[in-house]
């Protein structure tokens, strides 16, 4: 029986290794040909003209994710506090399934609603030629990361031992003081994990933002059409010729995306470890 568990564990590890090796092998040739500097810091992506600079894509992914986290985390975090501590049971029983439902909505549906409702609204409200923009993508991403943030934060908050809160209340702290001074700090690592999960979801999302971001490789600006690392791969993969530099460069973008996510996870791991030791 032990061996079965072990094998199942190996499957996951095996796939991670396989993907890593595959991405590195297929991503490196184009980088070598284009030049690491020109590839990462080049400001123009125009495959037809042989220009493969992905700086606009990197910056868009960074800004898009940052924007989504900036909007989504406060809302999600406060919702989690509400669900775990404040809300009367009946109300929580309505909100919680709604959050679960939000988590279950496929990303293409988020994109569709964004495309049909949000994008035309932005166009009219801001008097733009077209509403597809970084702003639209940020708004969609912010909603998409809400469920992960809410669910994980709530679980972390619910796991805080009751005695901590009772002790705080017994010392004369109000309910709110207790939640934010005692419960939240006690659940800190879980909440931080929720934020990272949100970042991971936002930076890895492709379908929904493909439909609302406009997909031109501009330098990021809120009201401009932009292309993320993910959508950069998605939009050009279909028609890029097999074995062409364009196709290879798309794999290189995948490699960069992969490294990004690794970096985020390692950083968080360090922060949490440091946190535990102090």
């Amino acid at each position: 029986m032990q061996a079965v568990f072990f094998l199942c564990g190996l499957v996951a590890v095996g796939f991670v290794l396989l993907i890593t090796v595959y991405l590195v092998l297929s991503g490196l040739p184009a980088i070598r040909q284009i030049g690491l500097f020109d590839f990462l810091l080049g400001s123009t992506w125009a495959a037809g003209q042989g220009q493969f600079g992905i700086l606009p894509l990197i910056l868009t992914s960074v800004w898009g994710t940052a924007g989504a986290v900036l909007l989504g985390v406060p809302v999600g975090f406060l919702t989690a506090v509400f669900l775990a501590k404040v809300a009367p049971r009946r109300l929580a029983d309505v909100v919680r399934p709604a959050v679960s439902l939000l988590a279950g909505i496929p990303s293409v549906v988020y994109g569709l609603v964004g495309m049909i409702v949000l994008v035309p609204w932005l166009r009219d409200a801001l008097h733009l030629p077209a509403g597809d923009s970084l702003l639209a993508a940020i708004l969609v991403l912010a909603v998409m990361i809400l469920p992960s943030i809410i669910n994980l934060s709530e679980t972390a908050l619910a796991a805080v031992p009751k005695e901590y809160e009772e002790a705080s209340l017994a010392l004369g702290a109000t309910d709110l003081e207790t939640y934010f001074r005692v419960s939240v700090p006690a659940a800190k690592s879980g909440i931080a994990a929720a934020v990272v999960l949100g970042i991971g979801r936002a930076i890895g999302e492709a379908m929904a933002i493909l439909m609302v971001a406009g997909n031109v490789a501009n330098m990021p600006a809120l009201t401009k059409s932009v292309r993320f690392l993910t959508t950069g791969i998605a939009i050009e993969l279909n028609y890029s010729a097999e074995g062409s530099l364009q196709r290879q460069a798309l794999f290189s973008i995948g490699l960069v995306l992969f490294l990004f996510i690794m970096l985020i996870n390692v950083l968080l791991d360090l922060v949490l470890k440091h946190d535990k030791e102090v």
Partner: peptide, 19 residues
């Protein structure tokens, strides 16, 4: 700590899809 590793899951899933 464990929750952190759980957080890796969707990220990895996205990568699998990508590959």
């Amino acid at each position: 700590m464990k929750t952190i590793y759980r957080a890796f899951a969707p990220v990895m899933a996205a990568l699998v899809l990508c590959a």
